[in-house]
C-alpha cells in the first residue's frame, strides 16, 4: 500500500490530490477501481464456470442475461451517474469565500496569466495562486485549442479561441504543483508546461499586486 501510494506521488499526479476537486475525483477513482475489480472477477468466474460446469441450473440463460446483462449494469450505472453528478455539482458551487479571478491565455507554446488588481500583473508559464482560497480561472486561447490542467488540483478545461471557459480550483496548502497543456497543440505541445506556486494569502497579494499589498489587511 505504501509502495502504491508513493508510486502515485508526482508533480503532475492526479492521484496525489492537493485540493478538494482532485481529492473527490481520486476517491471516486479508487471506489470505481474496487467495483470494477469485483465485476471483473465475477464475470471471469461465471465465464470459467460456463466452460467447466455447463448445464447447471443456476447458470440458466434467463438468469444470466437478465441478471448479468440488464440488472447488474443498470444498478451500477444508475448509482455511478447519480454519485458523479452530485460530485460534479459540488465541484461547481462551493464558495464560502469570494474566489480570486485569474485570466489564463494559452498561445503556442506559452501560458500567460493575468492577475486581478490595480496594475494587472502578468506572468508567463508561472502561476501564482493563494492557498486555501478558491480561484476562478477564465481560460481562453490566442491561437489553437489548448487545455489548462493542474492535475493535483483538479480536472481540466479547454482553452478555445473565441470562447472563454471558467474552472474553479482550490489548493489547500502552499506548495509547488505542476501544470501542463493537455490538448495537442502542435510541435511544442510537450513543453507547454507551467509551474504553479500556491502562497499564503498575504504573500500572494505581495507578489501579484505590490502596490496594494500594504493595504491588503484592511479590506
Amino acid at each position: 500500500m505504501v509502495l502504491l501510494l508513493s508510486a502515485c506521488a508526482g508533480d503532475l499526479s492526479a492521484l496525489d490530490a492537493a485540493g478538494p476537486n482532485a481529492r473527490n475525483v481520486a476517491n471516486l477513482w479508487w471506489i470505481m477501481v474496487a467495483g470494477s475489480a469485483a465485476i471483473f472477477v465475477l464475470v471471469g468466474a461465471i465465464l470459467c464456470l460456463s466452460f467447466t460446469q455447463p448445464g447447471r441450473h443456476w447458470l440458466s440463460a434467463r438468469w444470466l442475461i437478465v441478471g448479468g446483462g440488464l440488472v447488474m449494469p443498470s444498478a451500477v450505472i444508475a448509482a455511478l451517474v447519480a454519485t458523479s453528478f452530485a460530485l460534479g455539482e459540488r465541484l461547481l458551487v462551493h464558495a464560502e469565500q469570494a474566489p480570486v479571478r485569474i485570466e489564463a491565455t494559452a498561445r503556442q507554446w506559452q501560458w500567460e496569466f493575468r492577475y486581478p488588481g490595480s496594475d494587472g500583473a502578468l506572468s508567463f508559464n508561472e502561476l501564482h495562486i493563494p492557498a486555501g482560497r478558491p480561484v476562478d480561472f477564465t481560460v481562453t486561447s490566442g491561437d489553437v485549442i489548448h487545455s489548462f490542467w493542474i492535475p493535483r488540483l483538479g480536472g481540466k478545461i479547454d482553452a478555445i479561441p473565441g470562447h472563454t471557459n471558467t474552472i474553479r480550483l482550490l489548493a489547500e496548502k502552499p506548495g509547488h504543483y505542476g501544470g501542463i497543456c493537455a490538448e495537442f497543440c502542435g510541435e511544442g505541445h510537450a513543453v507547454m508546461r507551467f509551474a504553479v506556486e500556491a502562497h499564503e494569502p498575504q504573500r500572494f497579494t505581495e507578489i501579484v499586486d505590490p502596490l496594494n499589498a500594504s493595504g491588503a489587511g484592511q479590506q
Binding site: S50, A61, G69, I77
Partner: peptide, 28 residues
C-alpha cells in the same frame, strides 16, 4: 451525455452474458 454513455454498457453487457449463457447451455 454521461448517462447516455453509461447506458450503452447495458446492451453491451447483455451481449456478453448472452454469449456466456450460450456456453453454459451447451457442451463447450
Amino acid at each position: 451525455f454521461s448517462a447516455a454513455s453509461g447506458l450503452v454498457a447495458i446492451p453491451t453487457g447483455l451481449q456478453i452474458f448472452a454469449w456466456i449463457a450460450t456456453l453454459a447451455s451447451g457442451r463447450p
